[in-house]
Amino acid sequence: MMASTWGRVVLLSALVWGTLALAQEAPAAGEHPAGEGGASEQKLSKDVQNPVANLISVPLQNNTDLGIGPFDRQRNTLNIQPVVPMPLTLDWNLITRVILPIVYQPDTAAELGGTFGLGDTSVTFFVAPKKPGKLIWGVGPALLLPTATDDVLGTGKWSAGPSVVLLVQPGPWTLGVLANNLWSVFGSGDRASVNQLLLQYFITYDLPEGWYVNSAPILTANWEAEAGQEWVVPFGGGGGKVFKVGGQALNGSVGAYYNAVRPDGGAKWQIRVQLAFLFPEGKKQQHE
């Protein structure tokens, strides 16, 4: 069991480092002229709200779920989420989004104790036009890989399904939706089948100097659950700022969401804190 766990750790570490290496070496997907000096904080603020922008980013997103079970336990999930756009053709980009979760799952039947380890890895590929119109969009497959180091941290199933993102950015606003539905394809025969929806709408209003306020709740539905226990529907919001430390562009944000609809024993609140490392195209081109 220990050898299997460490094997997964090594495999996933290679996946993350490989993605980061690709981010450094891949040719820029955009077409800004060389020597532009990097995007401004205001432009970066716009780009970070667009899931299919020509922007390499490595978000570290920490989600703390509060009020789980009869003992009001806490679950913590740190998502490592590299996003790498690459040119597919002269007119199209391929955006790869990976989510590697590191999870602490509490024992909901006791006041103490829980399980810590890796969860299932999500990989989404969006094909998107390089020069979209007013409606920005991307479509592609979403995959769920059974990389969890413990049964309570994952599904035990290889799953796949379609994913789509649609958004518009009029003036200081960004309004959009991202959705996918996954079905289990194969995996452990003694584990439950997977049929789950993820739906995230996002609303952002840009403020001066890289500041913004936003709401980006993640709605989920487990279609295999009992009637009345399928949905998690949060409401809330937060804000953040795009800034630089030295020459490194960063995006920091904080949000809080109340799960108005949730299954029995589900988390009541979620606190989301994120720090994303940004690699604008102009900065890459300065070194080419």
Rank of each mutant, 00 (worst) to 15 (best):
residue 152 V to T: 15
residue 153 L to P: 05
residue 153 L to H: 06
residue 155 T to F: 04
residue 155 T to M: 05
residue 158 W to F: 07
residue 158 W to E: 02
residue 159 S to Q: 12
residue 160 A to M: 13
residue 160 A to T: 07
residue 161 G to C: 09
residue 163 S to A: 14
residue 165 V to G: 06
residue 167 L to Y: 05
residue 168 V to F: 02
residue 168 V to K: 06
residue 169 Q to G: 08
residue 170 P to T: 06
residue 171 G to A: 12
residue 173 W to S: 09
residue 173 W to I: 07
residue 174 T to H: 05
residue 175 L to P: 13
residue 175 L to A: 11
residue 175 L to Q: 10
residue 175 L to H: 13
residue 175 L to V: 15
residue 176 G to M: 03
residue 176 G to C: 04
residue 176 G to N: 04
residue 177 V to R: 12
residue 178 L to T: 11
residue 178 L to V: 10
residue 179 A to G: 13
residue 181 N to H: 15
residue 183 W to Q: 04
residue 184 S to A: 07
residue 184 S to H: 03
residue 184 S to N: 07
residue 184 S to G: 11
residue 185 V to R: 03
residue 185 V to A: 02
residue 185 V to W: 00
residue 187 G to E: 07
residue 188 S to I: 02
residue 190 D to C: 10
residue 191 R to F: 00
residue 192 A to D: 15
residue 195 N to Y: 08
residue 195 N to D: 14
residue 197 L to G: 04
residue 198 L to A: 11
residue 199 L to D: 09
residue 200 Q to K: 09
residue 201 Y to G: 14
residue 202 F to C: 00
residue 202 F to L: 03
residue 203 I to R: 10
residue 203 I to Q: 13
residue 203 I to C: 08
residue 206 D to M: 10
residue 208 P to W: 04
residue 209 E to H: 15
residue 210 G to T: 07
residue 211 W to F: 13
residue 211 W to E: 09
residue 215 S to Q: 06
